[in-house]
Design a binder for these strands. Structure first.
Lengths: 182, 182
DNA sequence: CATAAATATATCAGTATGATACATGAAACA
DNA sequence: TGTTTCATGTATCATACTGATATATTTATG
């Protein structure tokens, strides 16, 4: 079990809602999914070819004017594959925070440097949080128009709650680092 | 800039505190660092060889009895390399939460299934949180014995704050999913 | 009307994972 | 006392993914 390649599952998940090109899939990754998942062209395009070969997706020509364009859609087999993956237990939730890594080794660089990393982190979170709260508001307004909105809202709320916790931590962390001059 | 391979930096960071074998490095990854970073043998052993070749680490024989053992230590050049990486701005903080991915596509699997994923997530967090709080207490008790303890505490506090936020979110998420029967 | 930005597909070197193989030493148990 | 399990220890490999880049066309912008 658990032989599913993640990239296949994400793509099928996106295709289960709408037909998309590889480029559009990448855009979804960089907007809706970017707070908890990522994927590069180097994994998307080969995976799309693979999915078609295995009968989990179909491709059709969507060329308009001169620009070539390949639109992918999910097949019945693809939908079953996705559903099976969805019902399997989660294998791994993983954080990869370079900020924490640098702080862990912070004694080697000193408090000023550590403080700078915390401030940079704080600014990034403060910059991004408004997008999450506004997304949550929008989703709440249109919660009844599509069943999927409820599930999108769950992930956005996760972001909001954790981002607020991050900001609290930033203040505490700076306080801990400042304690040396007591 | 930013040509540093992460695995090199983590290893040098660990070696900056104490001499270690590859096996011990892996153990540190799976305990102290596991909440925000990970690494496999497949990256550790090749990286160690590389670091020695580049003069950033030294290896010496630590064989006891019949068991062969290679102990690595950081060189002066390695310490400089580490310090440079530490002062460079953070490139990327990344979440890879399969739980959120499955929830995002939750409308395909339904509320019962989504609820199960949330519960599994909640149980995992509740199981792990006590280790973090106890680690924080220990570190607080020995905060003055080693400058590094302060920095370790920062990362543990990060874990505690975010884990508590996760638990709050679990309750809210289940409430949102339950709203259909209003 | 030029030029910058967005759309679109595709590949590749480099990096990391996860699983596994192999071997020894220590501890548990019976 | 023997045996079996667990911890220590080094190492490799197929597979997966990233980040950067190449190429080309269309749409916006000043």
């Amino acid at each position: 079990m658990a032989i599913e390649k993640k990239i296949d599952c994400v793509i099928l998940g996106l295709l289960s809602h709408e037909d998309l090109t590889g480029y559009e899939i990448k855009k979804r990754m960089d907007t809706s999914l970017k707070y908890f998942w990522g994927a590069s062209y180097g994994s998307i395009y080969p995976a799309l070819g693979d999915l078609v070969e295995r009968g989990l997706a179909n491709k059709r020509d969507g060329t308009e004017n001169k620009r070539n364009k390949i639109i992918y859609s999910i097949t019945e087999a693809g939908r079953n594959y996705l559903k099976e993956w969805l019902q399997n237990p989660v294998e791994k939730d993983e954080l990869r925070y370079e900020t924490l890594l640098k702080l862990f080794f912070g004694s080697e660089g000193g408090a000023v440097q550590a403080m700078a990393h915390i401030n940079a982190f704080q600014e990034k979170i403060e910059r991004e949080l408004p997008y999450l709260t506004s997304a949550a508001n929008t989703l709440r307004n249109y919660i009844d128009t599509d069943d999927a909105h409820k599930y999108y809202l769950l992930t956005v709320e996760f972001g909001i709650k954790t981002y607020r916790a991050y900001l609290e931590w930033c203040e505490e962390a700076k306080a801990i680092l400042g304690e040396e001059n007591k």
